[in-house]
Design a binder for these strands. Sequence first.
DNA 1: AAAACGTGGAC
DNA 2: TGTCCAAGTTT
Length: 303
Amino acid sequence: MTTMPTTDPDTVSPDALHTPVLGWFDQHARDLPWRRPEAGAWGVMVSEFMLQQTPVSRVLPVYEQWLARWPRPADLAADAPGEAVRAWGRLGYPRRALRLHGAAVAITERHGGDVPRDHAQLLSLPGIGEYTAAAVASFAYGQRHAVLDTNVRRVFARAVSGVQYPPNATTAAERRLARALLPDDEARAARWAAASMELGALVCTARNEDCGRCPIAASCAWHLAGKPAHDGPPRRGQTYAGTDRQVRGKLLAVLREAVDPVPQAALDAVWHEPVQRARALDGLVADGLVEPLAGGVYRLPLT
DNA sequence: AAAACGTGGAC
DNA sequence: TGTCCAAGTTT
């Protein structure tokens, strides 16, 4: 007979988590450029786009160049989307660059050039989903939102539910828990969002977690249970080699480096298999990442 | 709801 | 060396 994990918000004591985690954050928060006051809402938003599935260490240099080149949304909006794709470099998932450009255009046209404060308005921008809308509203504007990213989900899974990893897909129970654990005070809630995320990023990591440095190890359900290994369906593994994604990446790398439009032959050289190669290129065009010109040449999108 | 969507560092 | 993982969004 086993007992179910404790996921009922009524059974957890929020303040017993808040105080130590916030205290730890005061001491150990990283000095990241998008956390500095001068970053502004635009800096926060740019960082959130870049950090979607990409590690901080790789984002840092691109972020700095991006903000120097396009210090306000209108600056990016005035430039070609292809320039955003080029400046994105090797961060991966280049559609994010296109969406960030699209968001800048929408902000310029519909919001007077200022990143909106309202969660619903943020959510309506391209490339902004539930997480990013909450993150921008919380980090940039100090609002009270449940900011549920992969780090926070893991912290909650362990500290509250007593399991090593959260479910593959975010559940309603997780959202409910995140809301229940949000401090009542707005400023404290915003601080909590950043702190709980930072704890997951630095201490309560996916592998090699460091419970010895964790401010809530003593009350962590998973730690108390003896840190049982993950039990259940395998966590989704990604394959990459030989996929369309890899071919798309190679094609786009050529276009990013090229100053002038690229002839078909130059693209053909990146992949031997013609059917997959054509499918990948078609996909890039369909996604608006590549613009086909007359005469069988291609370039990053000008419009 | 499941699958597509890049890239590179760490173990 | 191959697997795992990184502040998700979209269809």
